[in-house]
């Protein structure tokens, strides 16, 4: 053994820049067409093009995050405003990744405003939180009169495909939906690395993937029939799942080990929910097939 090799200084850690990225999207409806009127960004977060894959009424935007992952200290803000009568659909081209942090917390804030009679769909791919990530994810949806929201989140704890578990770091989560200042939904909390809650039968029950789909409901929706239809659809991997209908919100939950199965299950539910709640057949975004 060469004694000099052990005396060599350790390689300094690679310093990646810390990103403070902001994206502001403003959708408006004019003459039955939804257009992306405002599209401003600062830092690496953007929408390249407004798409209309199903005609004029719905505008689809694919939110890109070129660094492809969120590192310690990064701060992302996605601010979306959907104007009266407009219908916007947001998705992402690939899994969101939160890398291990050597120190600072990273944060992502989704700030959605859906004006009167408007519709917002938030259909992202899964979020993978690497072991050691220190993250804070906040989603706030403010709804106007008669507006609709349908969105989901799929959270993978650790890169479970390679057997990684979430043993270090932490995840702060806060999701809130309000209509006229009154909360319809509140879920919040903090997961520590190797949190006993993750192993607990009443907590994550040892699962590595958890997902929640939320869809606002309104008087006149055929809720009982919709629940029955949705309950007849199960995730392909046989994972734990359940549906419930609160007075103003339909909730579907997945708890298992397969983010693709979770996403396909949510997409299958969306096939039934979209025509019933948003008045349009579900057209699978092409970006999901790439």
């Amino acid at each position: 053994m060469n004694p000099h090799s052990v005396l060599q200084p350790p390689t300094p850690p690679t310093l990646s820049p810390v990103w403070h990225a902001k994206l502001h999207l403003g959708f408006v409806s004019s003459d039955g067409r939804t257009v992306l009127r405002e599209n401003r960004h600062a830092g690496p977060l953007r929408v390249q093009k407004a798409l209309h894959p199903e005609g004029e009424a719905v505008c689809q935007a694919i939110v890109l995050h070129p660094p492809s992952g969120i590192a310690g200290g990064d701060q992302l803000l996605i601010n979306v405003h959907v104007g009266p009568q407009a219908h916007a659909q947001l998705t992402t081209p690939g899994a969101g990744k939160w890398y291990r942090s050597g120190g600072a917390d990273a944060s992502q804030t989704l700030d959605f405003t859906v004006a009167d009679q408007a519709i917002l769909e938030w259909l992202p791919q899964e979020t993978i939180v690497f072991d050691g990530a220190k993250s804070r994810m906040e989603t706030k949806v403010l709804l106007g009169e008669g507006s609709r929201y349908l969105g989901w989140e799929i959270l993978c704890l650790g890169r479970s495909a390679s057997g990684e578990r979430f043993d270090h770091g932490h995840i702060g989560l806060h999701t809130r939906i309000e209509r006229h200042g009154q909360p319809l939904w509140l879920e919040r909390g903090r997961i520590e690395g190797a949190d006993p809650m993750l192993a607990s039968v009443a907590g994550w029950a040892g699962a590595s993937v958890g997902g929640t789909l939320l869809a606002t409901l309104q008087p006149g929706d055929e809720i009982a029939a919709l629940l029955e239809t949705c309950r007849s659809i199960a995730p392909a991997d046989g994972a734990e799942h359940a549906l419930t209908a609160l007075p103003n919100l339909l909730v579907a939950r997945y708890l298992g080990h397969n983010s693709e199965a979770a996403r396909l299950w949510f997409a299958a539910l969306w096939q039934s929910l979209r025509p019933a709640l948003l008045g349009r057949p579900a057209l699978t975004p092409r970006i999901w097939n790439t």
Binding site: G189, A205, G210, E240, T244
Partner: peptide
Amino acid sequence: SDWSNLTPAFALCCARHET
């Protein structure tokens, strides 16, 4: 800011109980 209602298996059981 540290309050937590993240217990998904409990939430699943409560929803499953409905049927």
